[in-house]
Nucleic acid binder design. Structure first.
Length: 907
RNA sequence: GCCCGCUUAGCUCAGUGGUAGAGCACUCGUUUCACACGCGAGGGGUCAGAAGUUCGAAUCUUCUAGCGGGCACCA
């Protein structure tokens, strides 16, 4: 399509009456992508400011959910907005290798073939996962395209890319060399199903209705027994002590003595430890250092041996004794309890609620196990992050409350991070062992050989926590550890948009690594989005089956409607999803479509950008008015997007478009543009209509990219002329047009006030018509009295419009209202209006209507009078405010006077 | 146990000291030449409750109640 020479001559059938979103959705994205519109290189201005976002990488195994749709919408609004403002804009896409999830998915596939990953062996299994990734990993990226996400596909990244893997090894080696990564035996969270260690953040605590078992242990050399309480009796097989509080009188003389562990026969000491709460249970605690984190700590303090009675499958080991070895942990529990009962050593069992830890992926109950793992020391890095925050180096959370505090509280109480996972899919830990047991950490196997001085090395079998690579995402994707142009240009990024549940897991870790490796917090702002709940206020989850599929919404309502609904809902507080809401925005899209349809059907000879002559003094009032209103919404939308108040931008756009533009401007313009002869004045009026529409489309584009592009291309005169100078050589597209900016010179308070009088007048007449039950086909006479000469002039100029919109056969404007007795009357600011209703008026009903109106005004006047009578108000309130209130009162009083006269006239 | 958020029209939510708002739903009218996914006109709220600060409170403070969330402990 050519631009400025394009002339619109549409016939009604060229433009369907109802907007079909799928048409526009199927055609524009491909072209944008093909023309490189998403790449920052499209911007030719060397001085252009920078705007950059990295996407929170979705799992390759994943499918789009509502949280993604919300986040992507907001990111896209920001990216499109800044791009249109001439920023060199990068929104970098990519996916995450999602270690456990992906491995599980592929293992499940193998199972169908009757195989396990062990049948294949590590190398072939990993190859198989890659194969899976190539085949299915594009699902989520295709969904991003469907959403209209303006991401730069030329910079798409995957956490397992060679380059990003190099960044992972580099980070690991540097941290290791600084002593921030260490390896050792500690008690960790073990998932017996996934067969791997997990970090504290990957387990979920959940209340559990369990039992508290009171077990009696015989004290050696006496007939005394000491009773301990436990929720996990099976672990008693691994007890290596019983602990009591040193100040507990009941047990004082037992400290230092020995008990004989029932079922096992092991002799274990009774020790004293301050951590024992004398008021809980019996005040005596069994100590199982190998199977409980607290006991582990106590064991360290008292040098207790570790007896490992459970293996990685949560089955009892040989050390548990022949009677129990091989049993599952729950079978063992039953057996232990039964045996204690038989021995008369089970004192009692109580119902007891406590918290159990579950694997947040598979819900299996976590088993605390001692094992050799790699850890990252977090203290120092957390302190650096806290200091950056305190010094205003970021990040700034939006909304600030409560996230800043949530973030800093977590950093202040940080624990070391278990980073090794017993998986095959992931970044293998860059550590090797020599035959003589030396540990070599290196960037590559070659480097390790050189360091070790031998070729006979074995690499550590474990891989790193997926979040370890995610933590590097904002800079590894831009080329780190190389000092690339991209890294220099786009780091730190402008903003991160993400969900609250990964503030610790991801956001804080990116801050820490960003500071550590690049020296700067990786993003200026962090937008934490609301949660989308189902209509009952429940969190959506696959398990509950209450999820809503964004793709389904796209099909039913269109992408644009879904996007703007999400943008409108995106405040700090969670929102319940209701389809009715999308429906109303689908209606909005249809409204936009039909407004454009009207403009185009009346566009012959007209061109975007024309029709507003230089001499503003000659503009019609409604033209000055719409330009002022447009300027107002432009200002508000810009401000709202910049402060991440997307819902406010949507509100402003919705009401400007629907109320101001459609309900009034188009309706008023009909008088001018539908003339049969295309005189210069008519063409100008048509051009003005197109010009305002085109501006509105640009304001809407970041929220509704498809419909705006579709219409924009049909507008005569929309083309290169509207492109932002930074994209001057690009093919015309609204996504590279300048985003409108407000201009104080276009504000026109007087026009807004005068236009409001016209609008009010029309509304009063319509109100009378409605209340008097006048048929739409019936045209009425409208009599207007206005003392102010300027206002009379305005009304006179708008007689044709008033006639049309109030369905009047005649409109008479006079200084004083003179109307027959049989008239319905109303008062507007500065004017009185009467509608003669010979034979139609019900005097009683009309009196009733006027009295209702008067009562309303009197109530308001009373309130204002009371306020003005208050000396405190007059003395303390700002003079400006007092004046405003006085003006309001004067206006009300004038209208009351008119009403009184109207009632009098009725008799 | 500690911390935080929310409570505004029937529903879902905006609204940070000065006239209580929107969308949907509802009522009435309407197929008027862009749009019935529309047009026009309406009704509807002790802003959870109490006390305070202030000339003035949905808005600031304290307390109470209900709902929701996070963290810690849990033998």
């Amino acid at each position: 399509m050519t631009d400025s020479t394009k002339t619109a001559k549409y016939i009604a059938s060229d433009i369907p009456k109802a907007y079909d979103p799928h048409l526009a959705e199927s055609k524009h994205y491909q072209r944008w992508e093909a023309q490189g519109c998403f790449a920052p290189e499209k911007n030719r201005d060397p001085q252009a400011p920078i705007f950059s976002i990295v996407i929170p990488p979705p799992n390759v195994t994943g499918s789009l959910h509502m949280g993604h749709a919300l986040q992507h919408t907001l990111m896209d609004v920001l990216a499109r907005y800044h791009r249109m403002r001439g920023y060199r804009t990068l929104w970098l896409p990519g996916t995450d290798h999602a270690g456990i999830s992906t491995q599980i998915v592929v293992e499940r596939e193998l199972k169908k073939e009757g195989l396990t990953r062990h049948d294949l062996g590590r190398e072939r299994f990993v190859a198989r996962v890659w194969q899976w990734k190539e085949q299915y990993g594009s699902r989520i990226t295709e969904q991003l395209r469907r959403e209209g996400a303006s991401v730069d596909w030329s910079r798409e990244r995957f956490t397992m890319d060679e380059h990003l893997s190099r960044a992972v090894r580099e980070a690991f080696v540097r941290l290791y060399e600084e002593g921030l990564i260490y390896r050792g035996d500690y008690i960790i969270n073990w998932c017996p199903k996934d067969q791997t260690a997990l970090s504290d953040l990957e387990v979920e605590k959940e209340p559990f209705q369990g039992k508290l078992y009171y077990l009696q242990y015989p004290v050696k050399g006496s007939d005394r027994r000491i009773t301990v309480a436990t929720t996990r009796p099976e672990t008693m097989l691994g007890d290596t002590a019983v602990a009591v509080n040193p100040h507990d009188e009941r047990y004082r003389e037992l400290i230092g003595q020995t008990v004989i562990l029932p079922l096992v026969g092991r002799e274990i000491p009774i020790i004293a430890d301050e951590s024992v709460d004398p008021d809980f249970g019996t005040g005596a605690v069994k100590v199982t250092p190998a199977h409980d984190p607290n006991d582990y700590e106590m064991g360290r303090r008292h040098n207790l041996p570790h007896v490992i009675v459970m293996d990685q499958h949560a089955r009892m080991t040989e050390a548990a004794g022949p009677e129990f070895a091989g049993l599952d942990r729950y079978e063992a529990r039953e057996r232990v309890v039964q045996r204690f009962s038989e021995l008369g050593l089970l004192e009692r069992v109580e119902d007891y609620e406590f918290a159990i830890s579950r694997c947040d992926r598979c819900r299996t109950v976590i088993e605390p196990l001692i094992s050799t793992q790699w850890f990252c020391r977090m203290n120092e890095m957390a302190r650096a992050a806290l200091e950056a925050l305190a010094r205003g180096r970021g990040p700034r959370f939006i909304p600030e409350v409560p996230w800043t505090k949530v973030y800093s509280d977590w950093l202040e109480n940080i624990h070391d991070w278990c980073i090794s996972r017993q998986l095959w899919w992931g970044h293998r830990i860059p550590a090797w062992y020599t035959e003589d047991g030396r540990l070599i950490v290196a960037r590559s196997e070659d480097e390790a050989r050189a360091k070790a001085g031998t070729d006979r090395l074995e690499q550590d079998p474990d891989v790193l926590d997926t979040w370890f690579s995610s933590a590097l995402w904002p800079f590894s994707t831009l080329g780190w550890p190389d000092e690339t142009e991209d890294l220099k240009t786009f780091y730190p990024t402008s903003v991160l948009v993400t969900a609250r549940d990964i503030i610790f897991l991801w956001v804080s870790r990116m801050v820490m690594t960003g500071l550590k490796f690049v020296g700067e917090v990786p993003f200026r702002d962090v937008v934490i989005t609301a949660l989308i709940l189902d209509k009952h206020g429940q969190k959506m989850s696959k398990m509950k089956g209450n999820t809503i599929d964004p793709l389904d919404l796209f099909d039913r309502y269109g992408v644009d409607a879904t996007r703007i609904t999400l943008a409108a809902a995106s405040t700090g507080t969670d929102v319940r999803w209701r389809d009715e809401q999308v429906e109303s925005f689908r209606n909005f899209a249809n409204k936009i479509w039909n407004a454009a349809r009207f403009c185009l059907l009346n566009a012959e000879g007209a061109t975007v950008g024309r029709g507003f002559s230089e001499d503003r003094g000659r503009w019609a009032l409604h033209d000055r008015w719409i330009v002022s209103r447009l300027n107002r919404v432009t200002e508000r939308v810009n401000a709202a997007i910049q402060s991440y108040e997307f819902h406010d931008a949507v509100q402003a756009l919705y009401h400007f478009f629907w109320d101001d533009f459609c309900d009034w401007y188009i309706e008023l313009a009909k008088v001018d543009v539908t003339a049969s002869e295309a005189s210069p004045a008519v063409v100008d009026a048509r051009s003005r209509l197109l010009t305002i529409l085109e501006q509105a489309l640009r304001l809407l584009h970041p929220f509704m990219p498809f419909i705006t592009e579709e219409i924009w291309h049909r507008l005569p005169g929309a083309g290169k002329a509207q492109l932002h100078p930074a994209y001057a050589d690009a093919e015309p597209t609204i996504m590279l047009a300048s985003f409108p900016q407000s201009d104080a010179a276009r504000r026109d308070e007087q026009a807004e006030r005068q236009m409001q009088s016209v609008i009010d007048l029309i509304k009063r007449v319509r109100n009378i018509r409605s209340e008097m039950n006048i048929k739409p086909s019936e045209h009425v006479r409208v009599l207007v009295g206005a003392a102010d000469a300027h206002l009379r002039e305005v009304f006179v100029a708008y007689v044709p419009h008033i006639s049309r919109l109030a369905r009047a056969s005649e409109v008479l404007i006079a200084e004083r209202l003179e109307a027959p007795r049989a008239s319905a009357r109303a008062a507007v600011g500065g004017a009185e209006v009467a509608v003669p209703l010979e034979g139609l008026i019900d005097f009683a009903a009309e009196r009733e209507r006027l009295r209702r109106e008067r009562a309303k005004l009197e109530k308001e006047a009373e309130k204002i009078n009371a306020q003005l009578a208050n000396t405190g108000f007059r003395e303390h309130a700002p003079a400006e405010k007092v004046e405003e209130v006085k003006r309001r009162l004067a206006d009300i009083e004038q209208r009351l006077k008119s009403l009184a006269q109207a009632l009098e006239a009725l008799g």
